[in-house]
Nucleic acid binder design. Structure first.
Length: 506
DNA sequence: GGTTGCGGGGGGT
DNA sequence: ACCCCCCGCAACC
């Protein structure tokens, strides 16, 4: 623990430098010199300092479905991620995207939600738990201190983003309005059956089913399926889907194509913040080069093509044969695997602990190769204890994630990124001697090239996992340090509009 | 009916 | 002493 003097010294050069605070510090930085813009989608081991008058920070909001977790500390609010609700069959929506619902925060409501059927294909829904923090859900910490609200996140979400809270709320309210109006229309029809037959107010209600179909109605509302503009209650209704996106667009929170990746085994961060890692491995010009295409899936997958055509200034670093792996360490967005797939690594067991694939199979052995590298520790027991009955019931068809491996490379994601802002990268907690010196030497030559439109920083040297398992989370060795300037998202390739959804706050 | 924050409590490491 | 998780409660929307 640094002395007060040291802390102050650190703080004075905090911008772009080492974090001088931790959410658990007895004394937080006083009168911070800079504040961050609110980040709706914090991901990774990031920390922000918000002004105490930042409404969203006051409400501890997050795009992720975070639920309160009792940490028995009245000064620090802790929340853990609930993951995301997906269609068990991973059906594709008309637009090629996937259903990614926001898990209900309330346990009871969530159980109810999970009993519903997919509004698109009527198959079951499944809750994909978040295990992005050493096998546990990603946690967010909030602390009000002085005139600042300190935020700290631990873990990298290893699942797709759920529908944002604002989306959910807007959809619900829109749906209520629809039903209210449709109910009125129906009543009107009943009063004037002849004059109204075959028509409706705006032509959108022609296929409105009887309101007495409570069950279906319930599904449409509770399942949270985006149905906003049209009161179409038949599931495979294209209009409903299209409308849902119209609404999303309206809300400024639409998911870009590469987030709603059609292949459920590939989860990509929608992060506007990207990074460029150039290493001895191979590099790609495509944004997510390490997202290995499932050999069993069609190469003509439109979204896949789209994915590879997007230019997010992200190159990748492949850790084949290396002792550290940015991908697996920081990004758990990959599925369980049963057999080696294209580009699949088979010798990175040492990262299992940090990349517990959360999908479906609670058994660690089913998530990773069973041949971890020598000296590679795992958190199997930890993961095992994490598995709860509540999640077991939603195990999907085993074959779904047994044939390949896909990984998302981008590590950090925050809708907040700014242009013309210096990117601050620094190693946090280089006081992991055993870690860094033992196997991280490659990092010394590792080129970290961060796009100007992103000041994220990322990291990972997962090495400390094995050398200092009892120490702080290795992934925290690095951190994302936002400068808190203009939150605009800019992509040089002209796909910036795809990220508008993230700018709703601005 | 859902969200949120709080706090008691159990169990594991 | 931590951590995780469950649960119930109350306030709020």
């Amino acid at each position: 623990m640094p002395t007060d003097t040291e802390q102050k010294a650190d703080y004075l050069c905090s911008y772009g430098m080492k974090f001088n605070w931790d959410i658990n510090d007895p004394q937080m930085p006083q009168e911070p010199t800079h504040f961050d813009h609110f980040c709706e989608w914090p991901d990774g081991y990031v920390r922000f300092i918000y002004r105490d008058d930042e409404k969203k920070a006051q409400r501890h909001l997050s795009g992720w479905a975070m639920r309160n977790t009792n940490n028995h500390n009245g000064h620090i609010l802790k929340k853990s991620c609930l993951g995301v609700v997906l269609c068990a069959q991973a059906c594709a929506l008309p637009d090629g995207s996937r259903l990614q619902l926001r898990p209900a925060i309330c346990d009871k409501a969530r159980l109810k939600q999970q009993r519903k059927a997919c509004p698109n294909c009527s198959s079951s829904l499944e809750l994909i738990p978040c295990r992005g923090h050493s096998g546990y859900p990603v946690t967010n910490f909030w602390r009000l201190d002085g005139n600042a609200i300190f935020f700290q996140a631990k873990g990298v979400h290893d699942h797709p983003r759920p529908e944002s809270k604002s989306e959910t709320e807007a959809r619900r309210s829109a749906f209520k309005r629809q039903m209210a109006s449709s109910y009125q229309a129906q009543k009107k029809r009943m009063r004037e059956p002849e004059s109204e037959e075959g028509q409706d107010n705006d032509g959108h209600f022609s296929n409105l089913p009887p309101l007495e179909n409570a069950e279906q109605f319930d599904i449409m509302t509770d399942v949270g399926f985006p149905v906003s503009g049209h009161p179409c209650l038949s599931y495979p209704n294209l209009d409903a889907f299209k409308t849902s996106y119209d609404l999303a667009t309206f809300q400024g929170d639409i998911m870009p194509p590469f987030q709603k990746y059609p292949n459920p085994r590939i989860y990509l961060p929608r992060s506007p913040c990207s990074y460029d890692l150039a290493g001895p491995g191979y590099t790609h010009s495509s944004p997510y080069p390490t997202l290995y295409k499932d050999s069993t899936s069609s190469s003509n997958d439109t979204d896949w093509v789209h994915l590879n055509t997007l230019q997010c200034n992200v190159n990748s670093y492949s850790s084949y044969g290396r002792s550290f792996d940015f991908t697996s360490q920081q990004h758990g967005w990959k599925p369980a695997l049963g057999k080696p797939g294209l580009g699949e690594r088979t010798d990175h067991g040492q990262f299992q602990a940090m990349t517990p694939c959360p999908y479906y199979n609670p058994e660690h052995s089913c998530r990773y190769h069973k041949t971890p590298s020598p000296g590679a520790p795992t958190l199997q027991t930890v993961i095992t204890t994490t598995t709860k009955v509540s999640y077991q019931a939603y195990q999907p068809p085993a074959l779904k994630y047994s044939d390949t491996v896909h990984e998302g490379k981008s590590l950090s994601s925050c809708n907040y990124a700014s242009e013309n802002t210096p990117i601050s990268i620094y190693a946090e907690g280089l006081d992991f001697p055993g870690t860094v010196t033992k196997e991280a030497s490659p990092t010394g030559s590792l080129a970290l090239k961060i796009p100007e439109d992103c000041h994220t920083l990322r990291s990972t040297l997962a090495l400390s996992q094995e050398s200092t398992p009892s120490r702080a989370d290795p992934a925290e060795t690095w951190a994302m340090y936002p400068s808190g300037l203009e939150p605009a998202i800019s992509y040089s390739n002209g796909v910036g509009q795809l990220f508008n959804y993230d700018n709703e706050d601005f």
